[in-house]
């Protein structure tokens, strides 16, 4: 589904966190929201999900105006930086949660729910751990369970908040490649937030560079590298991955 953001504005106390954001995302695209801490990228992602109330503007999911829709009605697949798995549920129960929460009329029968759950676990390459609990898994495994859980509801859009932020560098690279493959297989419109420009440039079809609540540039990684529109973009892209003041800082604008 294509996603459009029109004139989106959001303020925290008198400070503008998002300032008249306009963004069009085509169906099936893999988009990175890139920027330093406090640039508003996470706020924008959460606003699209409906987790963050906005002050002005509109959010469109295809032809539907989603601005007034609740989080539940938007049916977005959201993956949190720290996974937010349900600790007291098995991996399978985590993955099937969205299906089990459906109203009776649209809920598949129990056997079907189980089958779909196991299928998703195969998709994220986690066969055979359906009965384990989140605290028995590694970080990378947890993140993949979180992704399977988000995919289970057949989301209108997949939103990932710093999906690899809490993982070590090696796992991060592996998962990056894997996420690209998964995206190409499933074709969900995907938006992910990152402060790591290498990750954004490597993975995304288009990169949205943000700074201080505004969009600096939206372009393909190649164009951003070749023709940065502003000095901010040029400087930010120059920086090497894992720079001391950028790495590992969870951003919440």
């Amino acid at each position: 589904m294509d996603i459009s953001v029109r004139q989106l504005g959001k303020k925290y106390a008198a400070v503008a966190a998002l300032h008249d954001i306009d963004l069009d995302i085509a169906s099936g695209e893999l988009i990175a929201l890139l920027g330093p801490s406090g640039s508003g990228k996470t706020t924008l992602l959460r606003a699209i999900a409906g987790l963050e109330p906005i002050d002005s503007g509109r959010i469109l999911f295809g032809a539907i105006d989603a601005t007034r829709l609740s989080v539940q009605e938007r049916q977005v697949g959201f993956v949190f930086q720290h996974y937010a798995l349900f600790k007291h549920m098995s991996v399978l129960d985590n993955v099937t949660f969205g299906l089990r929460m459906r109203k009776r009329a649209t809920r598949p029968p129990r056997a079907e729910i189980r089958r779909r759950g196991l299928e998703l676990l195969t998709l994220v390459q986690l066969d055979g751990i359906a009965d384990r609990y989140p605290n028995q898994l590694s970080g990378g495994q947890r993140q993949r369970v979180a992704l399977a859980r988000a995919l289970a509801i057949e989301p209108s859009v997949l939103l990932l908040d710093e999906p690899f932020g809490a993982l070590d560098a090696k796992v991060r690279k592996e998962l990056r490649v894997w996420l690209r493959q998964l995206h190409d297989e499933t074709g969900y419109t995907t938006i992910f937030v990152t402060h790591d420009q290498e990750e954004a440039m490597d993975l995304a079809d288009r990169v949205v560079v943000m700074n201080a609540g505004e969009i600096e540039q939206v372009d393909t990684p190649a164009m951003i590298a070749r023709q940065p529109k502003t000095s901010f973009v040029a400087e930010f892209i120059e920086r090497k991955a894992g720079h001391a003041d950028m790495s590992g800082v969870p951003s919440r604008a």
Partner: peptide
């Protein structure tokens, strides 16, 4: 509140979120 937010994005309403996620925790 992250687990509660996750439950909401997965379609669970307030009451079900409380019962299935908050309460067990």
């Amino acid at each position: 509140t992250e687990e509660e937010q996750a439950a909401m994005t997965l379609g669970a309403g307030g009451l079900r979120t409380f019962w299935h996620v908050t309460m067990p925790n």
